[in-house]
Every structure is written in structure tokens, then in C-alpha cells.
Design a protein around this nucleic acid. Sequence first.
DNA 1: GTTCTTCCTGCACAGATGTCCCCTGTAAGA
DNA 2: TCTTACAGGGGACATCTGTGCAGGAAGAAC
Lengths: 225, 225
Amino acid sequence: MSDNSRGKAMHKLTQRQKAVLEYISDSIHARGYPPTLREIGNHLGIRSTNGVNDHLRALERKGYLTREDMKSRTLRLMKTPDGKPSSRPPAANDNLIEIPIVGRVAAGALSEAIEQPDDTVHIDRMLIGGQRDVFGLRVTGDSMIEAGIYDGDFVFVRKQLTANRGEVIIALVGDEATCKYYYPEREHIRLQPANKDMAPILIPKNDWRSTQILGVVVGVYRRLH
Amino acid sequence: MSDNSRGKAMHKLTQRQKAVLEYISDSIHARGYPPTLREIGNHLGIRSTNGVNDHLRALERKGYLTREDMKSRTLRLMKTPDGKPSSRPPAANDNLIEIPIVGRVAAGALSEAIEQPDDTVHIDRMLIGGQRDVFGLRVTGDSMIEAGIYDGDFVFVRKQLTANRGEVIIALVGDEATCKYYYPEREHIRLQPANKDMAPILIPKNDWRSTQILGVVVGVYRRLH
DNA sequence: GTTCTTCCTGCACAGATGTCCCCTGTAAGA
DNA sequence: TCTTACAGGGGACATCTGTGCAGGAAGAAC
């Protein structure tokens, strides 16, 4: 046994093997359970269970899946066709966070708005830095264009009542949620737009309630095209 | 048949039924596939497959799971024991797309880069407009700051070889992928930065190969904080 | 009491499913 | 040329696995 290409080498898949792997993955995600040999064969036009088994053995040998002897539907994916470790069910859930997109946000109504969101999106934790208690908001207006936040952008906001100087926050001014830089100063809180044509909003510290900060912006998304 | 508590009433589970449901759920999450009748019986100390089947029938009747006739391991959870809809995998998957984040992109090597991505992220289809063939790229440099695309931003790119005038594209210039506005003109292709301090890149149409367009930017994401 | 439902035992059986063996053929390497 | 990996066909076979029938015991509901 010369076995020259073993070790932790990246075994590449053939087109056919890839198709098999993809069908297994699809089946698991769409139905919640893996397919049988015959289901795989049926889907790919392979009439012999042995033909399918050949592919499964190859995939097993290359480390893309494991299975248990003599048990039906016990396929488990180990890697995606790209070679990424694919403990998909855990991975998909662990790395994702469901974020409510709230439409209008009125005073005190943030939690209500989050409880009954118009919509939700799923975001990879990687993109929001593993934060918790995040909600999404659609930006209206051009007050932050110099910070690269445009009209229509989505901002993802970590819910918190305090912020550090200079952070981009969502604050409640009157009955409206607004996106600004946060600059606490001696006499007042300055909410600074990133737009030289717009003036800062100054709120005397007397009038300021801590509940007016809804959160800190941790991500911005813009659709183009 | 009086059947007084039917309708869409919330059917409560017995202790035993709950245990069965929990074992099924555990099995799916821990192993990736549902158990068989005998596995359930074995785990709960039920020696008769029929005893187990009784529970499954009860759970089915009460709407907590479904299964397919004469197929092994085809249990599907519909509700958690609390009564919450538990269609986690379907919901999460239909709306999500897995996007490879490619690092370096050299001439002709885009598909390879996508096949072996350094990383992938999951993006809600809603955010990229239901596009297919999308990959992600980290932006380097300030050439698009006036378009709100900053150094370090992620751009999501729909793979295509053509573009419309004025779109933000990723093109291959030399051996490097670059993000610019696309302006085809009489004599040359103009790749226009969105930065008044930078000059456009002009490529004579003779030197231009269609493969130089890698795709059109459909989304931009920026982490803050 | 009578009738349900729940929760089992035990068992027979048919259909589903994985495994194994024997083949054919192609293509790439050594 | 010989070997190996790939991509199957066809089929026998043992085992898995769900289904169904015949009960039984305990408790609740009527």
C-alpha cells in the first residue's frame, strides 16, 4: 500500500459524488432526515443500489460523510463539497441569529415592536460579532451619509441603554427613532448627524432619559442594484 | 362520538408522550436523523414496538409530529412539547443562502476561489434579492467611499460576465479584483472609482476580455463598533 | 358498572433497506 | 501493460423496521 495522497490531504470530489452529497444535504434540510440508498439512486437515475453504495463508500473514504452499519438513513455529513466541516444542524443554528426588523419605533414601544416584528432576517453571527439582543431597522433620511449609512439601508442594532462617546446609536427623539453619533457633553447630549448640511440635535441633560437610547449600531447593510 | 375537545384546541401531552417527543428531538439534533420505533422503545424501556407506536399515533393525532407510511426514520417534529411550532430547519433553510467569502481572486481563479473558500457566511435571501451564484469579498481601499463602500466592508457579488452602465462591479484588473463603477465607452472601458481623489482606470477595448467582469455588487455589509 | 384512554407485552408479517457478489466499461497513472 | 479510481447494472439475501392483531392492567369519565 503506497497510499501516497492520504494524510489530511483534501480529497476532491467527482461531479457525481458531489451530486450525491448535495442530494443528501438537500434531503436532510428539506425533510429532516437523510435518504435511503434507493432514494438517492432514484433521484440521480442510478438503478443499482450498489452503484449508489459505491458513491457513498467513496464519500466515506474521503471523509465527507459517515454512516452506521446496517441502519437505514443514518448518513451524517462531515464536510460540504467545499471541504468545510459541515455539522450543519448545529452550525446552521449556532452561527445564525434571527433578527426582528422593526418598522416604527415609538416611545417605550421597542420591546413591543420586537415582539411583533413586521419581518425577520437571519444573520450570520460572524457579521454582527456574536452579539445578542440585536434588532434591525430601516434607515430613513440622509443624516448619516458621511458615515456610509444611506437612506434605505438596514442597520443592525444591539439593544442597550448606554453608549460610548462617538458610537453610532439609535435614539428616540420625540416619537421617532433616529440614527446619529452619540456625544454626551457637559450640559446636553449631542446627537450628531454625519451630514455637513444638518445640524446636531441637542438635548438638555434634564430632558434626557436613559431609555432614549435604544441601542448601538453594530452593522449596516445596503442592497444595491 | 361526542369529541368535545377537538378543533384546533391545544392538546396536552402526557408525561410519557412528552418523553417520547423529547427523545425524538434529541436524536435528531444529536445524530442528525430520527430514531426508529425500536430505538425509542429501547431508550424508554418499552419492549413492544406497538407500545411505541401507540405513543407516536397519539403524538401524530395531537399534531406534534408527522411521519410517512412504511418508511423508516421519517419522523418530523411539528411542535415542541410547549406547543411552539418547531419548523426550525425548513424556515431557516428556505430563506438562507450560503455564500463563500473569497480572499484573493486572481485571473481565472474565481471558481477555484469559490470552491475552496476561506470562509462562508449565511445571508437571508431577502437581503440579496433572491439572487443566485453570489459570493462575498472583503473590500480593500477607499476607492468607493463616495458610494458608501468603505475599507473592510463586505460586498456580495452576483457572478456574471456582463454589467449595465453605472453598476458597481467587481472586475479583474491585472491580477487583482477591484470594485468600481462600470462605464463602457467608445474606445475603452472606464472603471470609475467613487473617490474624487482617484482617477478612473481606462482599459482599451482591445485589451478587454469579457472574463474580466467577475460580477455585480448586490449588497454591502459593514461591521461597526 | 361501562366505556374510554393511556401504556404496555408479545408476536407475526410484509415491505424497506443495507450489504455483498459478480459483471461491464472508461479513463488516468505508473 | 497493469493497476487504480470511477460509474454503473443486476440480483440475492439478511436484517431492519413499520404495521397490525390479540390481549392486559390501571385509572378517569360517564
